[in-house]
Design a protein around this nucleic acid. Structure first.
Length: 873
RNA sequence: GCGAGCUUGGCGGAAUGGUAGACGCACGAGACUUAAAAUCUCGAGUUCGUAAGAACGUGCGGGUUCGAGUCCCGCAGCUCGCACCA
């Protein structure tokens, strides 16, 4: 290529599509289902997007980061799996259908097409031949197979469960769709309803899910902590309280109440027993007591409202029942129903020990229940420790506790459990906060649960040969409820067992199910079985998973569960799905409001030194907080418009600059412009090298001019520094180092005539091309092609390695301190030690001046680092 | 309430216990230009000083060290997550 062929400015409009086409036609990113034997494998995965319609900046940041890793690892010689797909089921598609009459499938596929186009314009090195969309039968049919295998393995069961029921929309709502006790869409008061639902038995793996966290050393500590708390292991005891005088006709099964406690040593401090409003015994009481029934109804009504949770007022209802104390058979205690007792933790009942628990204390005070003192805090005297001093929730020694008197809480705990076991009324247990995962959703746009309900046979799994159970397309959204339920024919089938008329399950899976195994499907996305063992076992675990912190608990925990369940059913053999996890920060932007308080889009606002004004009316605009880009605040910037104005590389470069990836970043117009300037500048500088420095320019040997030496050292230092930064995920630092080398190369033009400079400039330019390629791949290819027109693609070239000789430091500028304060610098040889250095340091003019009249008590010299004089007087 | 994280120039941020503020943005001065844009060069923590240089400086208070943004103890502020978990 001659200078004439090289455009003076970098025209991303033509350059970017050209290299994208080349990568595609050369198949440079493709990898086989079974990882090649001659290379180490590396699986990079970003959390796949929900196809909402448009890619947003958060996606760009997420995928740019992942692409840096993918391209870098590829250059380091790894076989890199870097797939992309769509989390394509979910409610927004049904909402679009109800609001705009477009079919969910069409809406979803259109969105996917639009977003795929944007991703492709951004030049990510993705395996597009592995693309999956969870809403297609090719994917969800395999998911149905997994479910049936889980069912056969006892990892799934069916049971009654409470749901939030919207009587107007005739649908089940998630907790976050219930606002102040009303449906988010209909505004109707929400009812609690019991439905028969499918559950994944995630609790079966609770101990392993907890233990496994210890092996995830490349996960952020806080995510592991969040999961640990969510799983919530606690040790304690389960014990039964028998009813003192059950009323005549009371159910035999309800003649005792089981409670869980972590503090069995405080049993002598018992004041009352409290039941959850949904507890079976509470229901029994309500049958014959209207006031109790009212109280329970009241609790249910308030249970879902935000207000109730915030007020958190403890309220109770005395049932009149009494229970006997296991250690004090002649004493009995009242049984209350209390709004703060949770049915789904422990056994839905607790014994109240007011002296050792804030909540029990508040309750006892409110209803004037006794507060027996059983724990004496360390350093307190039993004679003046009173209930008025409030509860003591820490450790201490036990008092007023019969056989436990004098023991520490810890010793008392062991003893109390032993006694309970001896009496046969209780046992030491481990309790888990984690609950089984209810996966049934009464929705159309989800994966059908492959079960057929037969009056004679009960729930019958759909036989393998009838899979996939495909969603019918001809559905209507003109009335409330689940369209699958309304469909005239779809659900009516013959029972696979007995052949009699039966009905399909019309529930579909929670969409978290879809995303719980997609990483495994990516390894063999077109296989007839859910996974292919050689592919799944070969590629998994994901070496680097990248996504938002908002999925720290549920998605990651469900995926970890699925991995275990899939291993148990023989679909793969790995213990954890994600070996490394990186949670990137959000993309924020200023928000703008006009005088009336209405939100404005960034493009409607003109910013000047004097302030912010409306671009058309000139009205003064209030600049609000910098916060997460959101449609409601209108502070969004569309990636498509940025790509059109500045190109993909500029967008990528900007989201990777400045802010460390794990922190939030602020999107600014000035920042993008700066990134665009850099892209042009680097192009100009490298173009100048390609024009001025012949490809066969020789390396200078012997006497090397200082400017040449400096540039070569800068080049090799940059290779080392960028490599280190990328390994450490500090892409912002890699960007800074590339800025530095770019400036050094520009500066070298001034010494262009020095012997060997042409070689050094070419070397620097080539290095820049290769090092910037993970971040700005199109620019990287273009620069490389200017320098070496017919060479291999940057995407296929190995990562440069620095020459050790050029990394070595030749001259040290040594800082000289007096009493730890910098007073001057001297030159030193590398590793130079001994008296000569100290002498030169003492002689440094400013140092000598300040040492005048002082006595040097101690001389400290750390070679290559520092000289420090400690003085007296 | 419990837990985690953060706090460094005008702004984003950099810094294996060893010259704090790399790099970028914004800003100022200059060059080029009829002019502007673009580009290039130079400058810049604050205060004092013509300068050399000095004092102060990484949220606040202590400590360890020859030397602390970095390690330890205590405190404050902000952000996020969980939250009646028996």
């Amino acid at each position: 290529m001659t200078a004439h062929d090289m455009p003076a400015t970098y025209d991303f409009h033509t350059v970017e599509p050209r290299w994208q086409a080349r990568w595609e036609s050369d198949g440079v990113f493709a990898v086989p289902d079974t990882p090649p034997a001659d290379k180490p494998k590396y699986y990079v995965l970003e959390m796949f997007p929900y196809p909402s319609g448009q890619l947003h900046m958060g996606h760009v940041r997420n995928y740019a980061l992942g692409d840096v890793v993918a391209r870098y690892k590829r250059a380091r010689g790894y076989a890199v799996l870097h797939p992309m797909g769509w989390d394509a089921f979910g409610l927004p598609a049904e909402n679009a259908a109800r609001e705009r009459g477009v079919h969910p499938r069409q809406w979803t596929l259109d969105n996917i097409a639009a977003m795929r186009g944007t991703l492709q314009r951004l030049g990510f090195s993705l395996n597009w031949d592995r693309e999956i969309a969870t809403c297609l039968p090719e994917y969800y049919g395999k998911q149905q197979k997994l479910f049936l295998d889980f069912l056969a393995a006892g990892l799934v069961d069916r049971r009654e469960s409470w749901v939030n029921w919207d009587p107007v929309d005739e649908t089940v709502l998630a907790n976050e769709q219930v606002i102040d006790g009303k449906g988010w869409r209909s505004g109707a008061p929400i009812e609690k309803k019991q439905l028969s639902q499918w559950f994944m038995r995630i609790t079966k793996f609770a101990p392993d899910l907890l233990d496994g966290l210890n092996s995830l050393d490349r996960w952020p500590e806080r995510v592991r902590l969040m999961q640990e708390r969510w799983i919530g292991r606690s040790e304690g005891a389960r014990l039964r309280f028998s009813l003192a005088q059950p009323p005549a006709g009371f159910d035999e099964n309800l003649d005792s109440v089981e409670v869980f406690t972590t503090r069995p040593e405080t049993l002598f401090g018992m004041s009352f027993l409290a039941l959850a409003p949904d507890h079976p015994l509470a229901a029994k009481v309500a049958e014959r007591n209207v006031a109790a029934a009212d109280f329970i109804a009241e609790c249910r009504r308030l249970g879902t409202s935000v207000e109730a949770v915030e007020k958190a007022e403890k309220r109770g209802f005395d049932t009149g029942l009494r229970v006997r104390h296991p250690f004090l058979p002649d004493q009995s205690f009242p049984v209350w129903i209390a709004n703060f007792v949770l049915m789904d933790y422990g056994s839905g009942a607790l014994f109240g020990c007011p002296c050792g628990d804030q909540r029990d204390y508040d309750f006892a005070r409110k209803y004037d229940l006794p507060i027996p003192l059983v724990i004496l805090p360390p350093g307190e005297n039993a004679n003046d420790w009173t209930a008025d001093k409030g509860p003591w929730t820490g450790e201490g020694s036990l008092i007023n506790s019969g056989f436990l008197d004098g023991l520490s809480c810890e010793a008392g705990r062991t003893e109390a459990i032993a006694r309970l076991e001896g009496l046969g009324v209780g046992t030491g247990v481990v309790n888990w906060r984690l609950r089984d995962w209810g996966v049934s959703r009464q929705r159309y746009w989800g994966c059908p649960i492959p079960v057929i309900h037969c009056a004679g046979c009960g729930p019958v799994p759909v036989p393998d040969e009838q899979l996939p159970v495909v969603l019918p397309e001809d559905v209507t959204f003109d009335r409330p409820g689940n369209p699958l339920d309304h469909h005239p024919t779809w659900k009516h089938v013959a029972c696979p067992k007995c052949g009699k008329p039966a009905t399909r399950e019309t529930d579909t899976f929670d969409t978290f199910v879809d995303s719980s195994w997609y990483f495994a499907r990516f390894t063999a996305p077109h296989a007839a079985t859910p996974t292919v063992r050689s592919a799944a076992d070969g590629w998994l675990a994901v070496d680097q998973y990248i996504g938002g912190i908002e999925h720290a608990i549920l998605h990651l925990l469900y995926a970890r569960f699925f991995t275990r369940a899939m291993r148990e059913t023989g679909h793969l053999d790995v213990s954890e799905p994600f070996a490394g996890l990186f949670t990137q920060g959000m993309v924020n932007h200023e928000s703008y409001r006009d005088a009336k308080g209405g939100w404005l889009y960034p493009e409607e606002v003109r910013r000047t030194g004097a302030g912010a004004f409306h671009a058309e009316t000139g009205e003064e605009i209030t600049v609000g907080r910098v916060e997460k880009m959101s449609k409601s605040k209108r502070n969004t910037v569309a990636p498509v418009s940025i790509i059109e104005r500045f190109g993909a590389d500029t967008a990528r470069w900007f989201v990777l600059s400045d802010s460390p990836p794990e922190r939030d970043m602020e999107w600014t117009e000035a920042g993008v412009a700066g990134a665009a300037r850099f892209v042009q500048r680097l192009y100009r500088i490298v173009r100048a090298v390609a024009t001025a420095c012949p490809a066969d320019a020789p390396e200078q040997t012997g006497e090397i001019p200082a400017a040449v030496d400096a540039l070569r050292r800068a080049t090799h230092r940059t290779i080392a520094a960028v490599t280190e930064a990328l390994e450490a995920f500090t892409v912002n630092v890699a960007v800074a180092r590339l800025h530095e080398l770019t400036s050094a190369l520009a500066e070298a033009e001034r010494a262009a005539d020095e012997p060997g400079m042409a070689f050094a400039r070419r070397e620097a330019a080539l290095t820049l091309a290769l090092l910037c390629a993970p971040m700005t791949p199109h620019l990287g290819e273009e620069l490389l092609s200017l320098l070496e027109p017919n060479a291999a693609l940057a995407a296929q070239r190995p990562w440069p390695t620095p020459e050790p000789a050029l990394l070595a430091v030749t001259q040290i500028k040594l800082a000289v301190q007096i009493m730890g304060k910098l007073r001057g610098t001297i030159d030193a040889e590398p590793d130079e030690d001994g008296a000569a250095v100290l002498a030169r340091a003492e002689a440094e003019p400013n140092v000598a001046r300040l040492l005048e009249g002082k006595k040097i008590v101690k001389r400290i010299h750390v070679p290559n680092r520092i000289v420090n004089f400690v003085v007296a007087g």
